[in-house]
Write a protein that binds this DNA or RNA. Structure first.
Length: 422
RNA sequence: GCCCCCAUCGACUAGCGGUCCAGGUCACGGCCCUUUCAAGGCCGUAGCGCGGGUUCGAAUCCCGCUGGGGGCACCA
């Protein structure tokens, strides 16, 4: 039997990483088994907000590298079929009308159980189940009716969803059996929590895929990180390509306890991916990212600056703060300047020929010897004067890129602002 | 209140009765390298929630407790 799963976001706002993690598991599972993965929007209305939200969801999934088979489906499209099925259940005696709504009869005794692919056997006492509304008095099917019905109609073989659906499952199983359908395999994956142990939400930081994109995370890094939230191929491997994730993913190895989203680890992992990029690819991504974020800085200069930062930043979003001095003037803190050093640096650099990182290095090292000072003593005022910060890319390369004229100009301006030189 | 699920370092996890005085990664601390910051290398701190069983032997199995989480809608 061909595996067929579905990703079922509700069109409320943006795509939440917790939900994406669940979709990712669906997708990895299907792709690793030559199966199909559908995208189904669980909507109950068709407002414009829904349409926009759907576009947003599709865009976020595509960016991450998660694709789906066939057109996006909408739960509401099955409304008439749902009503017909409900009427059929009434006719068959499995359901009944109640103040305009249709309710299904739940068994009163025994248990409803299933073998969960990640949690093992789960049993629910039937006495716990109330007669569930299938179709509201206004004619719209409820979620617990529409969802399993569509799973059946779409031939879904595995329902991989969040933990919070565990208690819906027995109801859906009863619905499916009444319909004459065989329930799919259920796999309930644990939820993703924030650092404080509560459900991951905006107060913890970024939560929508779009926010991670805007912050300069790489989709492959985010995918790798998300895959490891509740799943591990073994105890050692952490960095895995998309293909490796697909090849190794299995529901059996999904854990059953909730996982905490660790922003620091994501940052580290993103840095690993960033550093692993070829210089050309890195520059391409950086340029694309900055364009997307609305920076109109010259592409050639961005490309030239890329190698200076590749080893240094772990999110592309750090680029403007870290290397922005190459694109605009700076405001050095006078307290960090040293008039004497700046005068000496200006003199030494004015004579450098040609203006290359290597020659600049030679000149500055000679200066240190002449002055009998440690490099850090000599370099810091220069760094601050030229980059506006005590933290920057390599000094020689930065000076080279800035150009002699601009470098000397910044040194001069800074010297004038420095505390009275001795 | 009732029902369901979960429980290994601060975090993600490996471990599916002995090979574990518990391994890997992030974070943290120290050292090295070093023009700042990173990166990299080396070393280190740190964990089986508690109590009973079962067993020659338990992180691993069973029961209870405690602690988390989720659910009990004509929401999804």
């Amino acid at each position: 039997m061909t595996v067929r799963v579905r990703m079922a976001p509700s069109p409320t706002g943006f795509l939440h990483v917790g939900g994406v993690r669940t979709f990712l598991f669906n997708w990895l599972f299907a792709r690793g088994r030559a199966g199909e993965c559908l995208l189904r929007i669980e909507n109950t209305d068709t407002s414009r907000e829904v349409a926009e939200s759907v576009e947003q969801i599709e865009r976020s999934l595509r960016w991450l590298g998660i694709d789906w088979d066939g057109p996006t489906r909408f739960q509401l499209d099955r409304m008439e079929r749902a009503q017909a099925e409900a009427r059929r259940l009434v006719a068959e005696g499995a359901a009944y009308e109640d103040e305009g709504a249709i309710r299904i009869r739940m068994p009163d005794e025994g248990v409803t159980a299933w073998e969960d692919a990640v949690k093992g056997r789960i049993e629910f006492p039937n006495a716990q189940l109330e007669d569930l509304v299938l179709v509201r008095s206004d004619g719209r099917p409820t979620y617990n009716f529409a969802s399993p019905l569509e799973d059946w109609l779409d031939g879904i073989t595995h329902v991989i969803r969040g933990d919070d659906h565990v208690s819906n499952t027995p109801k859906q199983i009863v619905v499916l059996r009444a319909l004459g359908a065989e329930p799919p395999v259920y796999a309930h994956v644990p939820n993703v929590l924030g650092p404080d142990g509560r459900k991951l939400s905006k107060r913890h930081g970024a939560v929508s895929v779009d926010e991670f994109r805007a912050a300069g995370y790489l989709p492959e890094a985010l995918m790798n990180f998300l895959a490891l939230l509740g799943w591990a191929p073994d105890g050692e491997t952490t960095i895995m390509s998309r293909d490796e994730l697909i090849a190794r993913f299995s529901l059996e190895r999904v854990g059953s306890s909730p996982a905490t989203f660790d922003y620091q680890k994501l940052d580290w992992m993103n840095g690993v991916y960033l550093r692993a990029l070829s210089p050309e690819e890195y520059a391409d991504r950086l340029v694309a990212y900055l364009r997307e974020q609305g920076y109109d800085w010259p592409e050639e200069r961005i490309r030239a600056a890329a190698p200076l930062v590749q080893e240094k930043i772990e999110r592309l979003g750090q680029f403007p703060g870290f290397a922005g001095f190459l694109f605009h003037d700076v405001e050095p803190d006078p307290a960090l300047l040293d008039g004497r050093m700046l005068v000496e640096a200006e003199r030494a650099l004015a004579a450098v020929e040609p203006w290359t990182a290597a020659a600049i290095e030679g000149a500055l090292k000679r200066l240190c010897e002449e002055l009998g000072e440690k490099p850090r003593t000599v370099y810091q005022p220069i760094r601050v004067a030229v980059t506006g910060s005590r933290v920057s890319p390599g000094l020689y390369e930065s000076l080279e890129l800035l150009g002699r004229e601009e470098s000397l100009r910044r040194l001069r301006v800074a010297r004038e602002r420095a505390p009275a030189a001795a």
